[in-house]
Amino acid sequence: MRLEYPTNIRIVLVPCTGKVDIIHILRSFEKGADGVYVVGCMEGSCQFISGNIRARKRVEQAQEILDKIGVGGGRVQMYNLSAGEGTHFAKFAVEMEEKIRGLGPNPVKNSKKNLAA
C-alpha cells in the first residue's frame, strides 16, 4: 500500500484499545505530547466485546478533564477502523496532525519551559 502519514506521530501498541486508560492519556500530556488519539476497531466488532467502547468512554473522560484544566479536550480523539482500512489509518493521522497544528503546542509543555527559564 505504501501510504504516507506524518512522521511526528509516535505509535504505542496495545493489545486492545480497552487497555488504554485515562492516566495513559494524561501522562502523555504531562510528558509533553501535543495531542493523543486512540485508534480502535469498529464498534461492535471488538474481539473482547467492549474494549473499544471502554476506550471511547475513557477518551471522553480525558477530554472532560483536559477541558477543565485548560489543556483542551480537543487534543484527544477516538477513531475507529477495521484491520483492512490502512487508508483510513493514514487519513486519521493526517487529520489529527492538522487539528493539533491548528491548536498549537501543548500549553503544559510551554509552561514547564517558562518556569525552568
Binding site: L26, I69, V71, P107
Partner: peptide, 8 residues
C-alpha cells in the same frame, strides 16, 4: 490533572 492545571 492537578499538576498540569497548576503548571498551566
Amino acid at each position: 490533572a492537578l499538576r498540569m492545571y497548576f503548571l498551566n
